[in-house]
Amino acid sequence: MQYFVQQLINGLTLGSIYGLIAIGYTMVYGIIGMINFAHGDIFMVGAFAALVVFLILGSLFYSVPVVLALLIMMIVAMLLTSLYNWTIEKVAYRPLRGSFRLAPLITAIGMSIALSNFIQVTQGPRNKPIPPMVSQVYNINGISVSLKQIIIVIVTALLLALFWYLVNRTSLGRAQRACEQDRKMAALLGVDVDRTISITFIMGAALAAVAGTLFLMYYGVIAFSDGFVPGVKAFTAAVLGGIGSLPGAVLGGLMIGFIESMWSAYFSIDYKDVAAFSILAIVLIFLPSGILGRPEVEKV
């Protein structure tokens, strides 16, 4: 039982990171109906930005409170990553909007390749380990919960609440939902569609940057190629939850997190990704639009 709860906590941590990335996928999909393949690499760029900021802080000051350092890392990473995603949208996706549907998918894959190799070229191909930032571990009834995990879950919960408020309670969120339903009509009613889409990309990137910072803090290492696997997992999570649905993305992220930690704990760590992908395939066989996705009905 203790073991199970332990795995549950590990899964929750992992799932939180996946969920944060998945929201970026699902929002972009919801609003312009494309898979932003570069999103995993946006996450990696966020982690690298946090890494560089961490090193700057380390070289400028003798010691910085951990919370303050994390906050600064997060904010800089959010700003920088947003700038990346904003630029990418403007350069690689916007000119193709309304064109052939596979074209933006290919530019997204191209951007993904370009981004990860850009980081490889400029920052070098090796893993970048950092000293542990937070190392406290609490032991409750034989279950060990590290402070890192608590930070991750709390930050994720706060961000999701803020995000939920933004989407459901502000005029920006209303504009986003309107664009999601019908971009042309929204434009006719005076919604600045380009701006709304840009903001969507910025929001997605900001969440991915937070995920990147948390990832760096949790694992203490990042490499240029680290965008792909979490990216694909998060994408899987978004689809599992029903792509286009924000609660679905979070739910999917948590599910993937749980599946992975449970599978590695009870079966074999080798096949944890196989398990996650297989469950995705099985779920989609029975629920072709994911768990919370709107079923796509083509009218005859």
Partner: peptide, 28 residues
């Protein structure tokens, strides 16, 4: 077979997942 009913991006992710499954099985 499993992807017959899937459309668009659901199809894309399952095919991607299939590719990864094959690779992971080859590794493990």
């Amino acid at each position: 077979f499993p992807v017959l009913r899937l459309r668009g991006d659901y199809l894309a992710i399952v095919t991607l997942a299939f590719g990864e499954i094959i690779r992971l099985v080859l590794i493990n």
